[in-house]
């Protein structure tokens, strides 16, 4: 399977990096920028995964390692089964 996993900070958690990028964009003249939140993006390629279990498997990856639930949320996207 091929999949994408997006990891981002929970809305309540301060994101200094996002803030800095937000500021940099407005300094560049993009005054319409209201807010930027930085995150992480993973492209995952695996061997065979039992059909129908793709999302569950990816959630396992997130829970076990990729995401720190204290501060982060995530979204998964299966590209190819």
């Amino acid at each position: 399977m091929k999949a994408r996993i997006y990891v981002f900070l929970k809305p309540k958690v301060l994101d200094p990096q996002g803030k800095a990028i937000e500021k940099a964009l407005s300094t560049l003249g993009f005054e319409e920028v209201k807010s930027v939140r930085a995150g992480k993006f993973f492209e995952v390629e695996t061997g065979d995964v039992p059909p129908g279990k793709e999302e569950e498997t990816l959630r396992e990856y997130c829970r076990k390692l990729l995401v720190n639930a204290v501060i982060e949320d995530y979204r998964i996207e299966v590209i190819e089964k």
């Binding site: 958690v13 200094p16 800095a20």
Partner: peptide, 15 residues
């Protein structure tokens, strides 16, 4: 990260 202590350590505010 392993859950023995609560909370998390984020990037320093100065980056």
């Amino acid at each position: 990260e392993c859950g023995l202590l609560p909370g998390a350590l984020l990037r320093n505010s100065s980056l």
